[in-house]
Design a protein around this nucleic acid. Structure first.
Lengths: 345, 345
DNA sequence: CTTGCTGCCGTTAGCGGTAACATAGCCTGT
DNA sequence: ACAGGCTATGTTACCGCTAACGGCAGCAAG
């Protein structure tokens, strides 16, 4: 295969170049390159070697236009710096990898306006499906999703009305469940530490579920502390110190995520607080990081990988009876009491 | 603007639909939607409102084919679970956001074969530029990059030969610099803990630079420990315990990244080891996480955000004299001694 | 009145592929 | 020997949009 380094690699190559180099029609080249239709083994090889020798790369823009099909799946998530979403992406990739579908990621930074822009941009590439985090979208975004005429999967959260399919957990229920576990363990003076929540609907719903469950027992949160931005671990430390300074009588702290929870744990250990007897702690997410901490923080697994996988399976027709629309999957997060909730009372 | 909910939103909308709805030619609609060419204010508004009322989303597939221009930038990175690359992406997005260019991310999992596939896939969308992590690529990948006829920016690393532009730091130099600092502080019995390195060329180069600098002082590493997979924090703990069990006489541990370094730090604190006097520690990356640790780990900032920004600036013609090719930018990582290297001897 | 702009908008001809159909050999059964 | 059915390949007509150019008012200058 004495490859011939042409002297003018100028104009980018097209099917025609390959077709001329291999002496068959463009259509046949196209068939070979897509493994579609019948092509004799002889021509197939001739075409393939010509394509490789030339360094031909197909033009999916043209292909997509002609075939009206594009192997892209738009994935729209609020953030990449959360560790939650990269893991969802991993799940999506795992499943999509052997379907010919390809994820394209857009990040919204928790902004509905940005989500709208990203969505518009993505839809303009006519993907064959959309995976989008959350159930809350601007009116325009909802309209676009509805009119797109492609399968939509909303992920992470099931507390609300879905446009099409939905895969996630009930964050409200997760909050309640944690509250019950805490109450059962005998804690009563409970504080909450979390993200600024107007944008993070899931954190908000956990908060709501949590307080609702407390209310059922006639309890209120005794203190709350909110943050935004910065190193979550450090914030966790600072906020924990702050909240305990205000209310030294607290006997439990519920964090809206594991990262600040871990910071809190480190603070408590530093400060010589007896965890979990004097003070119990719990976070949310089940991040891998926790495994390395001096004590295992109580948490709840958000089923991130599973959510990603299930969403991808829906879009690739691998779910249930092969439906790609109107599927609803509610996963059940597993509560891991770790070593920061005392066992019973 | 009494929007009319048509009874058949079947076929997806095209320019023609908007053109009919607004009584002008498709070309004029196209001009309005792209803000190109002269259109009277009156028609512009008519077209825009028609487009919005119909919920028209342009088809970039067709547009890209016709104009031979696509506003995509391929970004190819080894991993998303590293926190390093999300930060690079953030830098890229910051700059690209107001250029009309859009990043499309592909993940290789440190596999050259996968990189080849991802690259092929991406190039088939005819992006207007490529940002790819690292200088080491398969032969086929290099050929594709060279023949693509678009600006290429290799990032993270400058120790090697670039295909086109390059933005990064010298990991070899980073390793040397850390070694010198450690030696200056008087440590002599040094161990290394890191990732399995055949795939991570940058970690390997730091290792090489580090050992080379030791060798110049006639010193060898007394012990090494490698890992792959799993929770880095936990691995850091375990490996630290293991290496110290084998060689209790070590007086310094150099980690190939901050995450396992942090795990090591936690182990040492648990074990009551006097850091930094009995044992010094250092990592690499400058991850935000470290801020919340009980003691600030010595580290070196890898300039991740800056690298992302600079790469994006090159592709968008914002760099230097507007060149989009052949630019070389070497950034200087800042060494932060933190609290885990004793000050002088 | 003619000439030459300028501002606005339409027409034509693809971009590089692919769906769908047409076609040319060749084999098989009777 | 020939209809009928394969297999392997070619032809035609777009896909939805935009570059490039053309045309036509309206107006200023000559």
């Amino acid at each position: 295969m004495t490859s011939d380094p042409r002297l003018e690699p100028r104009r980018t190559l097209t099917l025609r170049d390959v077709s001329e180099a291999s002496g068959v029609s463009e259509m046949t080249v196209s068939r070979v390159l897509r493994n579609r239709g019948d092509v004799s083994e002889a021509t197939r090889e001739r075409v393939l070697s010509a394509a490789k020798a030339l360094g031909y790369v197909p033009n999916k823009i043209a292909g997509g236009l002609a075939s009206q099909r594009v192997n892209l799946v738009a994935v729209i998530i609020p953030s990449l710096s959360n560790m939650v979403f990269p893991e969802v992406l991993t799940g999506i990739s795992q499943v999509l990898d052997d379907t010919g579908l390809q994820p394209v990621v857009g990040v919204t930074n928790y902004s509905p306006e940005r989500e709208e822009q990203v969505l518009y941009e993505m839809l303009s590439w006519r993907p064959s499906g959309v995976i989008v985090a959350g159930l809350e979208h601007s009116e325009a975004s909802c309209a676009m999703l509805r009119n797109a005429g492609i399968p939509i999967v909303e992920i992470m959260d099931v507390d609300g009305e879905a446009i099409d399919s939905v895969v996630g957990i009930s964050h409200r229920r997760a909050g309640r469940e944690m509250a019950r576990t805490i109450l059962t363990a005998g804690y009563r003076k409970i504080g909450f530490l979390g993200t600024q929540m107007p944008h993070d609907h899931r954190a908000r719903k956990r908060f709501e579920g949590f307080t609702a469950a407390l209310a059922e027992e006639g309890l209120d949160l005794l203190a709350t502390e909110f943050y935004s931005g910065g190193s979550a671990l450090l914030k966790g430390r600072e906020m924990t110190q702050a909240i305990l300074a205000r209310r030294p009588d607290l006997d439990f702290l519920y964090y809206s995520n594991d990262m600040i929870g871990a910071g809190g744990l480190l603070h408590c250990l530093d400060a010589g607080i007896d965890v979990p007897n004097t003070l119990g702690l719990a976070g949310f997410n089940g991040v891998e990081l926790l495994d390395g901490l001096p004590r295992r923080l109580a948490t709840m697994d958000a089923c991130r990988l599973e959510i990603g996988r299930a969403a991808a399976e829906i879009l690739s027709g691998k779910s249930q009876d092969g439906r790609t629309s109107g599927v609803r999957i509610e996963l059940s997060p597993r509560l891991d009491p770790g070593q920061t909730i005392r066992t019973a009372r």
